[in-house]
Simulated scan of single mutants.
Amino acid sequence: AVCMVSAEFARSAGLAVGDRVPLSLYLANKAESPQWEFGFQVQWRGGRSPGLLNAAGEPYSVFFEQAYEIVGLYDTFRLAGSKNGTGEIARNMFIVPTASVTASDAENIGAFGAMNRYTTSFQIPNGTIDEYRTAYEQNVPESVRTHLQLTFDDNGYSKVVGGLENLRTAAIILFAAGLLSALAILVLLLYFFIVKQKKRTAIERSLGMSKNQCRVSLVSGVVVLSAVAVILGTVCSSVLFDKVQTLDLTGQNEHTFSTEYSLWARDENAVETEDAENTGALEVVIPAAMTVLTTGLSVILVNRSLKYELIEMLNK
């Protein structure tokens, strides 16, 4: 049981956020936009304002009463030359949640009319306009569709998401290229520092070093080298990523899709926290995985070299 009221009305009535106001609902006007205040249409719209008498000629009785807490104020703007087809909300109006009205207004409808952009709107998930159109054409008879015109407004989401898909494709290509480069460097590293070091291993063993000491001698150098490289790469990439995040690559600040007033806003903090946690985890998991992979492959290759007899290795 919460509501919003215009700041103008609140000032004139001495109301403020946090006050509780008892509201009594008498009738529903389902023909006009909420922009038209009661009685205002009589002068400007040819007397189309709903009357206070029902079909029986008796005054409408209250069909629902509830005390509402004011949780916000709003302002309206009456701009001359506003775009045709746009609608505002009334200056003196309480906005309450539909679900808070638990009684039916079936016997208290003061006016009704055809659906239009002022009285009928709905929300669908972003990016599903084409899917909705297909379902609409398949399920709504053509005789009905000829009398309906649907207008979709996603506030630029379609354009933004197209650019994001392109960025995603580019990011996948860059990730694949980076992964292949890392694997290629790893293969070369192991080839030159492990596989090609059989002579060194043979000399070390002939000098009395055990197989475990030979393993440590070869693997430790590779692991230290790869660990330093991975750490430096991770730090540099993180710094560069943060720098790129702050850049406006388009030269203007209108390339993002704001969810400030959408249903996503309620989950925005959770999403940002989750993304931050995922990014932080990747910065640890990927370097650790590369280091473990390097260590494991180094040990495997060293063990293969150590399987040869010492005399055979010296002869080679």
Rank of each mutant, 00 (worst) to 15 (best):
L53F: 01
G51C: 01
N84S: 15
V62S: 05
L27I: 03
A55P: 03
F112W: 13
L207D: 06
S220F: 10
W264Q: 11
A13D: 10
P59Q: 02
G85C: 07
G14N: 05
A55S: 10
M209R: 05
V271H: 11
A67R: 08
S143W: 13
Y60K: 00
S12A: 15
K316F: 07
L150C: 08
A103L: 09
T98R: 13
F193S: 03
G18H: 05
E32Q: 08
F192I: 04
S6F: 04
N166L: 15
F152A: 05
F77M: 07
L310Q: 09
E142I: 07
L25Y: 03
Y308N: 09
F63S: 00
T256A: 12
R215N: 07
D105R: 01
L297R: 01
Y60G: 00
N108A: 03
G81Q: 03
T201R: 00
R117K: 11
R145I: 07
F175A: 13
L263Y: 13
S210A: 07
V239T: 15
P50K: 01
R20K: 14
I300R: 12
N166Y: 12
T256I: 14
F40A: 04
T279W: 10
E88S: 14
T201M: 08
Y157M: 04
S100Y: 09
K243F: 15
S258E: 09
L174S: 09
G251M: 11
V271Y: 14
S82G: 11
G46Q: 04
E131Q: 13
R168T: 12
K307V: 14
T169E: 09
M313C: 06
I203G: 04
L73C: 11
K243N: 09
I129G: 00
Q138T: 09
V235E: 09
S226P: 00
